[in-house]
């Protein structure tokens, strides 16, 4: 009985969400469009978008693979005081695409109100490890928001802070669960998905069960904003269905005697501390002008960074990021 009642409540909730969406669609000045429209912030409307096809492509895939219906043409806004934000429940911001993350008091107030009224904000590239610097083509699973985001949200919600999302959070399994299998990757069942060391690291540490490093803010008990390392790089598809652009992997590998050898091996660069999921810190060893070399983990273990590129790596990464991105938008739709 109680289960049926819960189901009924859920259906009513979903219906009311759609009703609101439909109302929002009908009140906006544009002509009728099917599906929910996602807003995308571009502070400089004429600025360069690093992944222009990413969001439309993800929304299209979502329309093909799920029951949700999104308008594949995002609504671009350049200011948070734009009144249209109150007509659309999801706001997507690629932090790397913005000229800066400085907003007026009015804009911050509008965003606070938007989130309090039920709006959802997705800050892509809202997490970025310090050692990446100005390199926009990398992501790294740090477990804290980037400093500019922290500063910005302290102005919006001084009483709140970003909290890491647990690996068991619903956001990671609301529609897609786990990591892509061969069938999801559209490859033969016998084909090797990834190199062995890569697959082991991905399954056990990088993206266990299809999760990733996310932090979020709850407003009135609801997750109203999430920030993640850049995911949009994995959403784009060309007209033939090929993933674009190519993505490579950074993974940690160990080997016999690394705990001794890496401690003593020649090294002339700088070190960076990065917060881990468990709150402890990794020390990243990075040579100037090159990608990070190795890491000293708080457990005392030393591991080397290895870089893998190629079709299989790229396809796997794209498939993962697309599934993750769809989970985020579907979570936003249902919560």
């Amino acid at each position: 009985m109680s289960k049926n009642f819960t189901t009924l409540l859920f259906l009513l909730f979903v219906f009311s969400m759609f009703e609101n969406v439909i109302k929002a669609q009908s009140t906006r000045p544009s002509r009728s469009e099917d599906g929910l429209r996602v807003m995308q912030l571009m502070k400089n409307p004429n600025g360069v978008r690093r992944y222009p096809d990413a969001l439309p492509s993800l929304l299209r895939i979502m329309n093909e693979q799920t029951w949700a219906k999104f308008d594949t043409d995002p609504l671009f806004i350049s200011e948070l005081t734009d009144e249209r934000i109150f007509e659309n429940p999801i706001l997507y911001i690629n932090c790397d695409d913005q000229t800066n993350l400085e907003f007026s008091t009015e804009e911050n107030q509008a965003l606070r109100r938007y989130m309090e009224l039920g709006g959802f904000v997705y800050l892509d590239a809202g997490i970025k490890a310090s050692f990446l610097g100005a390199d926009l083509g990398h992501s790294y699973a740090a477990w804290e928001e980037r400093p500019e985001v922290k500063e910005w949200f302290q102005e919006i919600f001084p009483e709140k802070a970003f909290i890491p999302l647990d690996r068991s959070h619903d956001l990671f399994r609301i529609f897609f669960r786990g990591l892509p299998k061969n069938a999801d990757l559209q490859i033969e069942a016998s084909q090797k998905r990834l190199p062995e060391t890569v697959l082991t690291f991905v399954e056990q540490e990088k993206w266990p069960q299809g999760t990733y490093s996310f932090v979020g803010i709850k407003v009135k008990g609801r997750l109203a904003c999430v920030a993640s390392p850049i995911c949009a790089m994995g959403w784009g598809r060309d007209e033939f269905g090929n993933w674009i652009p190519p993505i490579s992997f950074r993974i940690r590998e160990s080997a016999e005697n690394f705990d001794e050898n890496l401690k003593l091996a020649s090294f002339t660069g700088g070190t960076f501390e990065v917060i881990r999921e468990d709150g402890l810190k990794d020390i990243i060893y990075s040579e100037p002008g090159q990608r990070p070399a190795w890491v000293q983990e708080p457990t005392g273990r030393w591991r080397i960074f290895k870089y893998y590129s190629g079709e299989e790596i790229s396809n796997y990464a794209h498939s993962f990021y697309a599934r993750l991105g769809m989970n985020v938008f579907l979570y936003a739709l249902l919560n």
Binding site: E256, N257, F258, A265, E287, W294, I304
Partner: peptide, 11 residues
Amino acid sequence: QRVGAAKLLGK
């Protein structure tokens, strides 16, 4: 050791 050495030499 051989595997470790090969990985290290990449740096």
